[in-house]
Amino acid sequence: MLVIDHLEKRYKTGDRALKGVSLELGRGDIVGLIGPSGAGKSTLIRCVNRLVDPSAGRILLGDVDLTALSGGALRRARRRIGMIFQEYALVERLTVMENVLSGRLGYVGFFASWFRRFPEADVQRAFALLDRVGLSDHVDKRADALSGGQRQRVGIARALAQDPELLLVDEPTASLDPKTSRQVMRLITELCAERSLAAIVNIHDVALAQMFLPRIIGLRAGEIVYDGPAAGLTPEVLTRIYGEEDWTRTSPREEEEDEEAGLPAGEAA
């Protein structure tokens, strides 16, 4: 369903963020993307919906080559790909409902969206999604009045309002507490299963990834160094992805979330 073929990304600064990444996702496949900061995880998923333009390689969604699209065709392709963001990226000053309905922007004309006259079916879909993520009581609240977990649920509802075939999930739990993190991950995996959605989930927390995601891809310095089942993440594999560290002693709670995860051993206390 999604085929990424020898994807390259070279930034104007000369940094090679991706060095020929290839992977394949079937319908309903959900995969965790792990790796140290700067490995290119964020660039990779942003290449898929072309928020970042790849330098070389192909991305096929169904039989559409996403790298060749522009203008209206690109926007129609983006409708098929939902995205969930790290710091929620909700439009803070709009209401919850407007945020969810903004997932329909690719489907409605400019004036309908300007006057907030979305088709009745879209509104009903939005209500249903808000029911599903448990926010029916907050429809008319402004997004910045919600807690972190609630905001991320709005973000999930917005992505699903697009009626996507593929979900791109960028560090969904990075700013959430451990309990909310689990709830959000559970919600995402459940929703993917219900709708047989394919998803790529960027995630820092290896333990959380192992708990919820059956397949893991390890990225290091723009190259895939591991692609296999979550159970296969042995200390050796983790060393290959993140670098030297005493992995046997790392309890899930102590997992670092910042750059230091990529440093050689001896740095940790």
Binding site: T95, M97, E98, R116, E120, V123, A126, F127, V139, D140
Partner: peptide
Amino acid sequence: MAITIGETGARHWRLL
């Protein structure tokens, strides 16, 4: 506020 319940029990939404 801007949510109204229709006769059939369906919810409708307008910003204002």
